[in-house]
Design a protein around this nucleic acid. Structure first.
Lengths: 191, 191
DNA sequence: AGCATTTATTGACGATCGTCAATGATATTT
DNA sequence: AAATATCATTGACGATCGTCAATAAATGCT
C-alpha cells in the first residue's frame, strides 16, 4: 500500500531506490473503519497523514455543532495544522467518513526525511505551495460566494465529493444548516 | 529604506554583505499615495511587495461591492496570489489605505535570489509557513466565528488595525455591511 | 475657520437563514 | 423481510442581516 504514496511523490520528482526504501521502512500504513478519529480536538498531534483510499473530513466543534472545513480524498495529505511550529492542542478533529487506509507520517520521520534527502525539501515545498493555493481558494470562496454558489461549484468541479459525502456534512461545509442545503438543492432543481 | 526589508530578513537568518548588497541593488523602493493600486483585478502580476511603512488592503470586487480580505501593515509581505504557479489574471486588487512606501520584488529577482543564495530558500520557506498559518487562522475564524466575534478578536489582538482602517473596510473584512458593523459596535458598548 | 466631502449612525422594511418539529425516505441490522 | 436507526425534506416562526434613505459626525481642503 505504501506504493500509492511512493508513486504519488515519484510523479512530482522521481525517487531513488534508497529514498523509496526509506519510506517503506518508516511509514506505517493503517486501516480505519468508518467514523474513526485520526485526530481529536485538544489532542497534541505529532503526525500527519496521506489518504491511500477512503476519505476523511476535518471539522471544528462550535457550540456543540460540528462544522466541517475540509474533505480529504485519495492522494491527499491531511495536514496537521500548525505542524510547522510548536506543538499545541488541536483546535479541530479529523475523522474518517468511509473505511479508509492511511499512511502515517510522524513528525520525527518527516524531519529525518528532510535532513537525509534534499529532494524532500523540494517535495515539502511543492506540497506546501499546493496547500497555500487551496487555502487561498477557500478564503476567496468564503468572501466572494454564498452557500448556493459554493454548492454549485462543488457540483461542477468536485462531483466525487457530492457523491460520497453525506449531505449534512456538505451543508456545514458550504456554510449552512442541513435544512437550508436541502432547500437550496430544491431551488436548483426548480431552475 | 531598503534597510527595513534587510533587517527584517536578517532577523530570521543573518544575511551576508553580499546578500545585502544584492538586495540593495535589485529591489526598488517606491512611494504610493493613499488609495493607489499596487495591483488591479484582471491584471497579471509579475511582482510582489513588502510594506516598509503605511498599509494596504487586498479586496475582491463582488457584484460591484468591494470586500476586503486582508490588511497588510509594516513588515508584511503582500503576496501575489498564485505567484508560485503560472501567471494568471488576478482575481483581486491591492490598494494602499495610507500613503505608503513599499519594496517591490519582481518574480525575476525572487528567482535569482533563490538560485544565487541558498539562504533565500530557507527564508522563502519560513515566509510561506507564516503565510500558511495566517491562512489557517483566517479559515478557522470564518467557520467558527461570527462577525461580532471577529470584530472583538480584532479589538483585542489587532488594535492597530482598528485604529488605522476605516470602519467600512473593517465591516467587509469581518463579513458584514458597514451598517451592521455600526450596530455591532453599539451592542458591544451597551454590554 | 468655514465649506465640502467622506464616513458613521440610525430607522424601517423585506428577505434569508437557523431552529424546532414532523414526516418521508434511505440504510443498516437482526 | 421486518424493524430500527440514520438521513433528507418540508413547514412554520422568529431572529438577524442587507438595503435604502435620512441624518449626524468627522475629515479634508482652501
Amino acid at each position: 500500500m505504501i506504493q500509492h504514496l511512493i508513486s504519488f511523490l515519484d510523479s512530482y520528482s522521481p525517487l531513488s531506490r534508497e529514498e523509496k526504501e526509506y519510506l517503506e521502512a518508516h511509514i506505517p500504513i493503517q486501516s480505519f473503519s468508518k467514523n474513526e478519529f485520526l485526530l481529536k480536538q485538544d489532542e497534541i498531534s505529532n503526525r500527519f497523514f496521506f489518504i491511500i483510499n477512503g476519505c476523511a473530513r476535518m471539522f471544528y466543534t462550535v457550540d456543540g455543532m460540528e462544522k466541517t472545513a475540509f474533505f480529504y480524498m485519495e492522494k491527499d495529505f491531511v495536514s496537521a495544522y500548525e505542524r510547522f511550529t510548536k506543538q499545541v492542542p488541536s483546535k479541530h478533529s479529523i475523522q474518517t467518513i468511509e473505511k479508509s487506509t492511511v499512511a502515517i507520517i510522524s513528525v520525527e520521520t518527516a524531519q529525518n526525511l528532510l535532513q537525509r534527502f534534499p529532494k524532500f525539501e523540494y517535495l515539502a515545498r511543492v506540497m506546501m505551495e499546493n496547500e497555500l493555493i487551496i487555502y487561498q481558494n477557500i478564503i476567496s470562496s468564503f468572501i466572494t460566494q454564498n452557500a448556493e454558489q459554493r454548492y454549485l461549484h462543488l457540483l461542477k468541479h468536485r462531483p466525487d465529493i457530492i457523491q460520497r459525502i453525506p449531505q449534512y456534512h456538505l451543508a456545514t461545509y458550504v456554510g449552512v444548516s442541513p435544512e437550508t442545503l436541502s432547500r437550496i438543492r430544491k431551488r436548483i432543481l426548480m431552475a
